[in-house]
Computed example of a mutant assay.
Amino acid sequence: MTNVDAGIVSAGKTVLAGGTRFIPSWDSGITYNTGTAAGASGISPDGGCIITDIDKPVVLLGDFGNWFERSKPQYENLPASFFYDVKTSGARGNGRGDDTTAINAALQAATSTGKVTYFPH
């Protein structure tokens, strides 16, 4: 950050003070910290801590030209029959049930038939 009033503001409350400084990583949400976050350990219910000692591959450090990136796959050349819908295996996706078994079955079925697994909205 360079000369900012507030680094992160949520619901009108400043969760990360501004200023001029480098932030290696930021963590937000309900997390369990084992002392690796600056000044934090235990459960952080409202989130917001700076992570200082994450192991990163050497190629990701330093020059920003070393970031790995990959385009999202495009499937415009595949027919609809080449996709395996997870709902075919019984996934409901309604937010109330556990679809783990159905999703695993769908992933196995798609893999064994050489299809692309599709998760509908």
Rank of each mutant, 00 (worst) to 15 (best):
S89W: 07
S81P: 07
A110M: 05
T101A: 15
F83A: 00
R96E: 14
S81C: 05
R92Y: 10
A80H: 05
T100P: 01
Q108R: 13
D99N: 03
A91N: 10
F83R: 00
T100F: 04
D85A: 01
V86K: 01
A110F: 03
Y75V: 08
D85V: 00
R92Q: 15
F82D: 13
S81Y: 05
P79I: 00
F82P: 00
T100R: 04
T88L: 07
A109Q: 09
F83P: 04
T101W: 06
L107G: 03
S112M: 07
N77A: 15
A106T: 03
F82K: 06
L78P: 06
A110K: 00
R96M: 14
S89T: 06
G93N: 11
G93F: 10
A102G: 06
K87Q: 14
L107E: 12
A105I: 08
S89F: 06
Y75A: 05
A105K: 13
D98Q: 06
Y75H: 13
Y75C: 06
S89G: 05
L78S: 02
A91Q: 09
I103D: 08
I103W: 07
S89N: 11
T88H: 04
T88I: 07
G97M: 09
G90H: 12
L107V: 11
S81Q: 08
F82I: 02
S81M: 05
S112L: 07
P79Q: 00
A109E: 10
A110Y: 02
N104Q: 15
S112Y: 07
A106F: 04
V86A: 00
T88M: 06
T111I: 05
F83W: 05
F82W: 08
R92K: 15
N77E: 14
L78Y: 11
Q74H: 09
F83Y: 06
A91Y: 09
R92M: 14
N94E: 12
N104Y: 14
D85G: 01
P79S: 04
F83V: 00
A105N: 15
V86N: 01
Y84H: 07
T101N: 10
F83E: 04
D99I: 00
E76V: 12
T101S: 12
E76P: 06
N77R: 10
Y84T: 01
K87T: 12
A106S: 07
P79A: 01
D85F: 02
V86W: 02
Q74D: 15
N77P: 04
A110T: 03
A91M: 13
Y84D: 03
P79N: 01
D99L: 02
D99S: 01
R96T: 14
Y75F: 15
R92G: 13
Q108I: 09
N104S: 11
R96D: 12
Q108A: 15
N77S: 15
G95P: 10
Y84G: 00
G95T: 09
G97R: 08
D99K: 00
Y84S: 00
Q108P: 00
Q74R: 12
Y84L: 02
G97D: 15
Q108W: 07
